[in-house]
Nucleic acid binder design. Structure first.
Length: 467
DNA sequence: GCATGATCATGC
DNA sequence: GCATGATCATGC
């Protein structure tokens, strides 16, 4: 039996050994046999780390990797933003959810908690053109969940558990929960699993920490935790007795039917209503968050806040837009790795205002994430779009309007073809274009005006009218 | 300079 | 009055 360069029975020894990785790549830290073996071994960073640095075979045990001391090893990519800030490149994927077993567990006895109670986190700087063995390791540290976060994570676990118990494992969504999500894993078609209380097979999913939550871990581990967050949850007692959702909804309640002017008067603030971040600031003021701060719990949970202005008949005045997609990206992606899918997996907070003549009055707030069946509808829109781009069939015809401008009519899925979403231009103007992977047959052009996916106003109206 | 959230304007 | 193509305006 070979001797390990660290003591399996000592957490300090393992962490100390791990910290030797700092500021180096695996190829610098491991024996030469790594380089030789890596030619045949195509494993990702995590597998290489376990095999050639910690010198054990990667496994999928329900026990933590260092079971003697209850420590689970996890590695994850980070990217750098301007000003040297690190952010997580993606969610941190923990263990796969065993749908059949989880229903006979509670949180304390769950495989999630047994395995991930105490994490040894290794963050490496991901660079597209480098090999995994050459990524530089930037952060190595132990992680325990703060008690307020843990309370939310327990509730999240409970939500996921409940849905599985009800035979709805196939309807799970990351947006069901706040910090701990059930994210899809293994995108290439297959990976369907049996679930309890339903014969429909469910997509494999894993417990994972939301990207926003991982950003907070990184900031706290690197000491870069700038004090620019305001909290909605003041104490452990608060979150033990209330959900984050109810805390938010209650704070908004008293402003029902009040005009934007009246709300500002009551809050004793005077915001620039024309400013682009007016609604974001008004929301912060209502929630009692300093304007220069971000809402900590929202950033951790990756909540997308959208302000909706309803007409008097409750139909939103506009559809909801998302960032423009790249034509030469979406055609190479699977639905579940696409940006649009990942947006629709998140939790939204809708803040509804309604026009009363010319004045906007606050109606209500609603936390929401897209139901499973609607996501299937959105998928159709995405698939049609990919197909149109792939075949170079974007432009259907060109007409001239009375100002003698050329108006291009496209084949992209329109509002009437789908109840959930559609595709429309979204750029500076029609000359704001992106490259096409296939030349458009009609225009013969290799570029086209930026477009994005939109949620239909009529669909948002339905969400407003529910409950 | 551009990405993004938000909004406008025309024609049916 | 809606559908759809087009564009605005702020902030990073």
């Amino acid at each position: 039996m070979k001797t390990l360069p660290y003591d399996l029975n000592s957490k300090e020894s393992i962490i100390k050994y791990a910290k030797n990785l700092l500021n180096k790549s695996l190829s610098e830290s491991c024996e030469k046999n790594l380089i030789e073996n890596s030619k045949t071994n195509k494993g990702g960073f995590g597998q290489l780390l376990e095999k050639f640095y910690f010198l054990y075979e990667p496994n999928s045990d329900s026990e933590p990797d260092f079971k003697e001391v209850g420590l689970e090893l996890k590695s994850s990519p980070i990217k750098k933003l301007k000003r040297l800030d690190y952010v997580s490149k993606e969610r941190l994927v923990l263990n796969i959810i065993n749908y059949l077993e989880i229903i006979s567990q509670d949180f304390e006895t769950s495989s999630f908690w047994k395995k991930n109670k105490n994490l040894l986190l290794i963050f490496y700087f991901y660079e597209k053109d480098k090999k995994a063995i050459d990524f530089k390791i930037e952060i190595v540290n132990e992680w325990n969940f703060p008690e307020i976060d843990l309370e939310i994570i327990k509730k999240d676990w409970q939500t996921i558990y409940q849905k599985i118990k009800e035979g709805k494992a196939h309807e799970l969504s990351e947006g069901d929960t706040l910090y701990l999500g059930a994210s899809t894993k293994g995108s290439k078609g297959g990976n369907l699993r049996d679930q309890p209380n339903n014969s429909i097979k469910a997509k494999q999913r894993a417990f994972s920490l939301k990207q926003g939550y991982v950003n907070h871990i990184i900031a706290s581990l690197t000491g870069n935790y700038k004090n620019n967050y305001g909290k909605l949850i003041p104490s452990l007692a608060t979150i033990k007795n209330n959900s984050l959702e109810s805390i938010v909804i209650n704070k908004f309640k008293k402003y029902h039917n009040k005009t934007i002017f009246e709300i500002q008067q009551e809050l004793n603030i005077n915001l620039n209503t024309k400013s682009k971040n007016f609604y974001a600031n008004l929301t912060k003021a209502i929630l009692g968050i300093e304007l220069e701060n971000q809402i900590e719990e929202f950033t951790k949970a990756d909540i997308i806040v959208k302000t909706i202005r309803l007409k008097e008949n409750n139909l939103p005045k506009e559809d909801i837009s998302f960032p423009a997609f790249k034509f030469d990206e979406i055609i190479y992606q699977e639905w579940e790795e696409s940006k649009f899918f990942n947006i629709l997996e998140q939790k939204f907070l809708f803040i509804f205002f309604k026009f009363d003549k010319d004045e906007l009055k606050f109606e209500k707030v609603k936390f929401w994430n897209m139901p499973y069946l609607d996501k299937l509808e959105a998928k159709k829109v995405w698939e049609q779009t990919v197909n149109i781009v792939k075949t170079g069939n974007i432009v259907k015809s060109i007409s001239i309007n009375k100002n003698k401008q050329k108006i291009r009519n496209t084949n992209f899925p329109n509002k009437n073809s789908n109840k959930v979403a559609h595709v429309r231009p979204h750029g500076l103007n029609k000359n704001d274009t992106l490259p096409l992977p296939v030349k458009d047959k009609f225009t013969k052009s290799a570029h086209y005006t930026k477009h994005c996916f939109w949620l239909n106003a009529s669909y948002i109206q339905k969400i407003f009218n529910e409950d």
